[in-house]
Every structure is written in structure tokens, then in C-alpha cells.
Design a protein around this nucleic acid. Structure first.
Lengths: 208, 208
DNA sequence: GTCTATATGTTGATAGAC
DNA sequence: GTCTATCAACATATAGAC
């Protein structure tokens, strides 16, 4: 698990300078992947950002794609786990939809760098395609919760549940483009406040 | 203006085989940019997709980045024009918000390849950064319309207008990831039907 | 855990013939 | 409007010393 949420800044090694540990190095790589895009980020840029040589990176990771793969696993594990929790709760349909929305927003806030990477995949390798398949499955699961909520009369039924899931996740996921937990995005003093606001807007769209 | 909406398929030249005209060539390039991502698409891949040599492409365009720039201009011109129309209508605030939502969805449907490219920019060049600035200005304009609608009591005011604009556009823009006008996306027989559905969900989120 | 040096392929772009 | 041939720059990744 890449500890991006750790207080230590991504580029800062353990103490003075020498020696990265793997989680810190991975977090710094993911940050640069998000800044320029995965394909536009070269191992040379990664090395410069880390302040070490290219070959030093290969001591920690097998390849550039492996860095991507580990980050995507972090994101998908967290998202799937959030959905598992909701499904295991046995709550009524409408409450499950709300819990899934809140849970997804929580994961986005906690693992924003890794999830951001996930959201921008184009399927250019097996690693990317496998991650996209897992992501689609999550959308499908939200669609099933919405379908149940429609049957219970709690959600508008003039749009298919799958398309409602897509639209809802589209809104939720878009926060990676502007919400920043640290710098205090205007209008949201805390993460909890942001989750509250976005949940309100998203659920408002689902109601009839 | 890249005529992607023309009935002729992107990869098919005029008649038998020889000779691309610029709009057709550009449309084919943009299609491949969207399939693999701009950075991951090489001039070699473009040439193979077009069935001509790399250097033949340079007869039509100055550089890879120029292809991107022309497509982004198409997208931004269309979006800005849609917002200009709404502003010029002099309609009441709530009606302007709805018209902006519908107008944006219409542009997305008509110029989906170019807008898709716009939505995935990372700011890796002056061309990209200039396009992103124009895009931010559009978001700002929607935010102002929403602020007016809030003042009129037609939109929830527990979220800042700018953040509501971001969330609304996040939902709207996400259609580029799944809506396809031609292949009939399940649940939406026509483009008008899709616009109707997404507008309904988006406006539902804006209401209190 | 890092370095320098290097191998090997691909990139965007150009020159100039047809 | 297309082609073949070519370029310098840069890509990912490896070898082996410290």
C-alpha cells in the first residue's frame, strides 16, 4: 500500500537525503504521473524529481509499468473494499446507494493520487486493461444498487440504473480535477464537508 | 473546422484510395488520439491508421501538436459559442443554467472527439495550457449563471456556485466515456433522449 | 542504495525524388 | 500528395563499480 496519506511529503526521503524506501518512492512517481500524465512522464523526469539517477529507480521497481500497476491496485483494492462494506451492511437499497457514494468519495479523498491515475487509463497495456475491467465492475455494482433503489421507489426510473451509475460516478470522480484536501479548496473547509456537499448534489440527481 | 460529424468514416479517403483532404485526416488523427491518448499515439501509429507514410502527414500539418491544437480550437469554439448564445438570450437565471447544460451536452454529442481530447489535457505544452485556460473560463461562466440562479432561489445554496459548476460539468463531461451516438448506447435511443436524461439528472442535483 | 556508462529501440521531424 | 531514407533526441532498461 502506497502511503500517500502519510504526513511526510512525497519527495522527501527518510531523514537527511540518502536512500528512498519503496512507498515513498512510489508516491513520488504517482504524483508526477498525475502531473504530466503517465505516458508523458519519462523515467528521466522521475529520476530528476526524486533527485536520484534513473537506474537507482530500478533498484526499487521492475519497470515503469510496475509502478503504475501497484498504484492501480491500491486504488482498486480500496474502492472494492468500500463496496464490499456497503454490500455486507445489509442496509436497504437507498441507504446502500448513499453509503456507496460516501464510501467512494472517502476513497477518492484518501487515495486521490492512485485513483486519479485509474480514472485516466486508456487501455494501452494488459495492466491498464485489467484495471479498467475492475473499474467497470465497480460501476456495475453501483448500477445494481441503484436498480434496487429504483424498485423501492427511492430513485428516478426514467434513466437506466447503469447510466445513472455512470453519471453519478462521473460527478464524484470529477473531484480529482479540483478538490485538494491540504490547500483548502474554496467552499470546503474539511474533507467531511466536501463529502457532505458532493453526496447531497449526487443524491439530488438520483431522486425523481 | 474538423468535420467529424460528416457521414464519411474517419479512416476512409475520398474515393478509391489516394489523397486525404485535411479535415478527414485530422478527424482520423483525433480518433486515434482519443483511443490511445495523445502522448501514447505516435506519428507512426497515425500513419499506419491512415494507410500513408509519416512524412505524408507532414504535407497536411505542421506538427503533431498542431493537430491537437486545431482539434482543441474546434471544441472550445463550439463550447464558447454555446455559452454566448445562452448569455445573449437574456433568459432568467434558472433557464440560463438549463440552457447551458443542454447546450454543453449538444456540443459534446456533436464534437465528441475534439471535446474528449480537451477533457484529458494535462498542460504539457503552451497549446495545452492555453486550451485549459479557455476551458476554465467556461466553467467560471457556468458558475456565474448558477450564482444568479442561487440568488433567485432556484438552486441550492449550501454549495458554492463554482463547485456546483464543477460537479455539474463533471457529470456532463463523463458521457464521453460511455455515450456513443451511432451504436445506440443502451437506454438512449437518440441523442435528444440522452440530453433529456442527463439534463434531468444534472438539474436534479442543482435543486435543493 | 546509488552511481556512470551503455545497449537498443522509438520518437517527431526533414530532405528530396516521383 | 505520396514515397523512401535518414536524422538527432530521447525512451526504457541493463551492466557492473562503489
Amino acid at each position: 500500500m502506497t502511503e500517500t496519506e502519510a504526513p511526510r511529503t512525497a519527495a522527501a526521503p527518510r531523514r537527511g537525503r540518502p536512500g528512498y524506501d519503496k512507498p515513498t518512492l512510489l508516491a513520488a512517481c504517482v504524483e508526477l504521473f498525475n502531473r504530466h500524465g503517465y505516458e508523458a512522464t519519462s523515467m528521466g523526469m522521475l529520476a530528476a524529481h526524486l533527485g536520484i539517477s534513473k537506474s537507482a529507480i530500478y533498484h526499487h521497481v521492475e519497470s515503469k509499468e510496475a509502478i503504475l500497476g501497484e498504484a492501480l491496485d491500491d486504488a482498486l483494492d480500496a474502492l472494492e473494499s468500500a463496496f464490499d462494506d456497503v454490500a455486507a451492511s445489509g442496509a436497504p437499497p437507498a441507504a446502500q446507494v448513499e453509503a456507496a457514494v460516501r464510501g467512494t468519495l472517502g476513497v477518492l479523498a484518501r487515495c486521490m493520487p492512485q485513483v486519479t491515475l485509474l480514472l485516466r487509463l486508456r487501455g494501452n497495456s494488459d495492466v491498464e486493461r485489467a484495471a479498467m475491467a475492475r473499474r467497470r465492475e465497480i460501476t456495475r455494482r453501483l448500477g445494481e444498487m441503484i436498480a434496487a433503489a429504483q424498485a423501492a421507489g427511492a430513485v428516478r426510473d426514467d434513466v437506466t440504473p447503469h447510466n445513472l451509475a455512470r453519471l453519478t460516478l462521473g460527478m464524484i470522480n470529477s473531484i480529482v480535477d479540483w478538490y485538494r484536501a491540504d490547500d483548502g479548496t474554496p467552499g470546503h473547509k474539511t474533507t467531511e464537508e466536501m463529502i457532505e456537499a458532493v453526496t447531497g448534489v449526487a443524491l439530488g440527481g438520483l431522486r425523481g
